[in-house]
């Protein structure tokens, strides 16, 4: 049994009076690729925001490498080695492509990823390095967002809806790059609407429904009908 890198213990999350997550329990081991699936509004993005520190939680609800991190600020969590590729890419419009990547590396963690490595992974970014990031196409912006997160050399990387709104050919390029990314020993959690895509790259899957875990299992043994039920919440 490999070391657990991330443990969620009865994790709740709120937006004001509205509760978005209810008692989520999760265990992620070193080197795993976890898919998080679920319908719109199931709480997938909230989960990503909680882990990365954009939403405050109680300290003990999120344990990273044995340390309670639930109450830390997002920048402290980033320093400790968790990176998020946020939904909608969220590049910095005032920064060039290269600056967007460099700012990701500003946490100063050592590791395999550098500007040159990112440019090898996505060569088109090298050509466009001096352009304002938001002048790029959606797919290229997604590459920048992924590169920006990698530049931090995280131990755990969170991908939030990285194929949303992109053309299939672009999605393929990005998903083809994923094995290279996690092949470096990085642990990954992947939020995805496209179940087939999610299952194709992951080793384990969690399904969320209305803020609760409705199904969990190993990708190769999980039953498709169970997924459908867990996804839509239909009783049968």
């Amino acid at each position: 049994m490999p070391e657990p890198i991330l443990q969620l213990r009865v994790l709740d999350a709120h937006y004001g009076d509205f509760q978005a997550l209810f008692g989520i329990d999760m265990d992620v081991s070193d080197g795993e690729v976890i898919a998080i699936i679920g319908a719109n509004g199931a709480g997938k993005t909230t989960l990503m925001r909680s882990i990365s520190g954009l939403l405050p939680n109680a300290a003990a609800q999120i344990v990273y490498r044995g340390q309670p991190i639930g109450a830390l600020r997002a920048d402290q969590i980033a320093q400790s080695g968790i990176a998020l590729v946020p939904e909608g890419r969220q590049l910095f419009p005032s920064l060039s492509v290269e600056e967007n990547l460099l700012i990701g590396g500003q946490v100063g963690r050592k590791g395999p990823w550098s500007l040159e490595q990112i440019f090898q992974l996505f060569p088109v970014l090298k050509e466009r390095r001096n352009q304002a990031a938001t002048t790029l196409s959606g797919g290229q912006q997604q590459m920048v967002a992924i590169g920006r997160a990698l530049m931090a050399n995280p131990d755990l990387i969170l991908f939030d809806e990285i194929s949303l709104g992109l053309a299939p050919v672009i999605i393929k390029t990005i998903y083809d790059a994923l094995p290279q990314i996690v092949g470096q020993g990085m642990t990954a959690m992947l939020v995805e609407q496209d179940i087939t895509k999610a299952l194709s790259v992951s080793s384990r899957v969690y399904c969320l429904q209305e803020g609760r875990v409705s199904l969990e299992g190993r990708t190769e043994t999980i039953d498709r009908d169970d997924i459908t039920r867990a996804y839509f919440g239909t009783e049968s």
């Binding site: 600020r73 980033a78 600056e99 500003q106 920006r148």
Partner: peptide, 24 residues
């Protein structure tokens, strides 16, 4: 400079800048 980059990033989107390890 790096600090100028951080200024612009925080100005663009403080939340996302926090994700880059910048304490706003």
């Amino acid at each position: 400079t790096a600090i100028g980059r951080a200024f612009r990033a925080v100005s663009d989107n403080a939340d996302i800048a926090q994700l880059m390890g910048l304490n706003k």
